[in-house]
Design a protein around this nucleic acid. Structure first.
Lengths: 204, 204
DNA sequence: ACCTGAACACCGTTCAAGT
DNA sequence: ACCTGAACACCGTTCAAGT
């Protein structure tokens, strides 16, 4: 009599994410995830190929939380922005996991689901062919790049404060820019950066 | 009689980069770097705090190769583009090391040197205050985000080819877009993405 | 001061054994 | 079939000892 599988991929991904949220990315080990679920380390290998696969499950699980129904907004730029903000919210809910999204973005089915939705907005706006491909990549680049930058230190954070205290002789512009950047919130930074990209894009 | 230091940071960084280029990021270990130099593993700890510090040296070493003298081009957008293309060339010369640049960008002095140069172009173009801060971050986000995306698979690569073969019913736009993206070279992808960002920016 | 090798506490993963 | 614990080949880093 075959024993039924006792774990699901979602369960494993959720446990891994809990470990990351609690102990950081450095705390993510096969042993830790197994313990979190309450199973032997080797039991995990019944469900995932290796550690890479486990990480991929985590990324897919995070992106599963992104609602990809077409946003109702008057302009295509606002609709694209709304989609990207949903993705940012879902990813930023687990800041320590951000680096994983950059490495495993291509193996997660839910990443494709998101890309398809974003392409829907672009297609409706009149983007076709190569132009649409470039537009998608630029948006994804800004989305993930901006998330990575903000995880290292948002404009309004301590890193920027340190830059503001830099010797004016060597980095005058960096110091001055850092001082002006102090009051910018991560939300604002994300929005305004993406707005630049969207403003530079046109379907024709 | 105190023995003189036998290693330099540049030498260590170069050895680490050689290891990465040869064996990938997974091959980067303290033991491998020490062996590459021809010294005991523990000798490295005379020069670097820990593995994190070693990685930071690698990133700084890669960015040291970026020429930050102001490019001579008619428009500020072309000058900004030229600077970013120099950075891309330096980083892309070591594709396996790209993920490190995302994690250690903030601790590398040469990253600040590059940011200062880019701010020089923006300042000359009339960007000031918050606007300049946002513009810098958007450019850096696109630069690093785009590099990360291209490392996973350029638009013209096998990943895109796989997407093009996707079932049309589930991902019609993704499949179609992937087909049109096939002939786009990494160079073109990088340039055109960054152009979108630059086009969307204005100093006033 | 600088360098070394052994040792410690991990890690991912293989393997043989249990139900 | 599914799960387990011991074992293997690593890893970063501490420490005591050598010159």
């Amino acid at each position: 009599m075959p024993r039924p599988r006792s774990l699901t991929e979602a369960q494993i991904a959720a446990a891994a994410l809990a470990v990351i949220d609690r102990d950081g990315l450095g705390g993510l080990t096969m042993r830790a995830v197994a313990k979190e679920i309450g199973v032997s380390t080797m039991a995990l290998y019944r469900y995932v190929e290796d550690r890479e696969h486990l990480e991929s499950l985590v990324v897919d699980h995070m992106l599963a939380a992104v609602d990809v129904t077409p946003p109702a907004a008057p302009t295509w730029r606002e609709r694209a922005m709304a989609l990207c903000e949903r993705a940012r919210a879902a990813i930023d809910a687990h800041p320590a996991a951000v680096p994983l999204t950059l490495v495993h973005r291509h193996t997660a089915p839910n990443a494709m689901r998101f890309a398809e939705a974003l392409l829907g907005v672009l297609a409706e706006a009149g983007f076709t062919g190569e132009r649409r491909a470039i537009a998608l990549r630029a948006l994804l680049g800004q989305l993930f790049g901006s998330l990575a930058l903000m995880r290292l230190g948002p404009l309004g954070g301590p890193g920027t404060a340190a830059l503001a205290a830099l010797p004016d002789e060597e980095f005058p512009l960096l110091a001055d820019t850092a001082r002006h950047a102090r009051p910018i919130t991560p939300d604002e930074e994300f929005r305004r950066g993406l707005e630049l990209v969207l403003r530079g894009m046109s379907p024709g």
